[in-house]
Design a protein around this nucleic acid. Structure first.
Lengths: 152, 152
DNA sequence: GATAATCATCATATGAAGATGCTGATTAAG
DNA sequence: CTTAATCAGCATCTTCATATGATGATTATC
């Protein structure tokens, strides 16, 4: 449904949104908590910084911290820059003269299904998502969650 | 939302469902009508035949024709074997002890969104999809649609 | 049976997403 | 100023969906 990169971005933001007083968190810590590859996540976090969603700081005690407001940042807005943009755009009936101005019935049905999925997360904010879930259980020693991934 | 292969499969079935008297249609014709690569579509049609959705016949005047009943074949059932099965399955909050038995709130929200999208096409049949769209405009000469793809 | 049409299938190429490793740039702390 | 921590970024590798080209297997028609 969403690309893995987009999922990393979302989970990283959810993680950062829970960090007390917005102190910088090194990529290593975030990657460890998320179970994501370090350098790959680094690129994603870098992009989040460019988007203004996070801030970054180099050097000792540096890292990433959340810049956006969790109450207004929506899931849709967050993952949009990381999501797969190659939709085929072909008419399902293949051959019918059909576009956005003159959509065929099948096209309308299909678009409606896609919109239903999109709408269900369009207005969901990071803060709402966090509030619906109980607090993470952190390890007292290093501030990392006790578990980093979920078995199938 | 769905893989290109799944879309080929769906459009091929929609195409075959419109063929009068279920006569065999060569891959070349179907590929031409759909604007899909011939050999690639061939594999997909072959799979449809193995699934019992279509039949195939080699030799002159051979080809593929629909076997399944458009009134009972659903879009979901059709594209399922061709769809992308690599969902990450990771908990969005990354670190919460969370599985299907003990889902976190975020997990529930996310699953609900995915299910909403899936449900919207789960019961949609091929026949319903065709009835909502006007008939294809065929070229009298070769039986192919006048247009094979839709400009962006 | 020879021929041609057609499906079946294999081997390989391509492009993008995902992942890894290395090197360079920045910066706080001593 | 030196050191170490950390982000920034490049080059490459892997994997997989998608696509292409060639070859073999079947079968109707003559």
């Amino acid at each position: 449904m969403i690309s893995r990169t987009a999922e990393y971005a979302l989970r990283a933001v959810l993680y950062l949104a829970r960090v007390e007083d917005r102190r910088p968190v090194p990529v290593d810590d975030i990657a460890g908590a998320l179970g994501a590859p370090r350098n790959y996540l680094s690129k994603t976090l870098n992009e989040l910084a460019r988007l203004g969603i996070a801030n970054s700081q180099r050097g000792p005690a540096g890292g990433f911290w959340l810049n956006a407001d969790p109450e207004t940042l929506t899931v849709a807005a967050l993952i949009e820059p990381f999501d797969d943009k190659r939709t085929s755009g072909m008419c399902l009936l293949g051959g019918r003269i059909c576009d956005e101005e003159h959509p065929c019935g099948a096209h309308q049905l299909w678009s409606a299904a896609q919109e239903a999925a999109r709408a269900s997360i369009a207005d969901l904010t990071i803060a709402q998502l966090i509030r619906t879930a109980p607090a993470l259980e952190f390890d007292n020693e290093n501030g990392r969650p006790l578990r980093t991934s979920i078995p199938a």
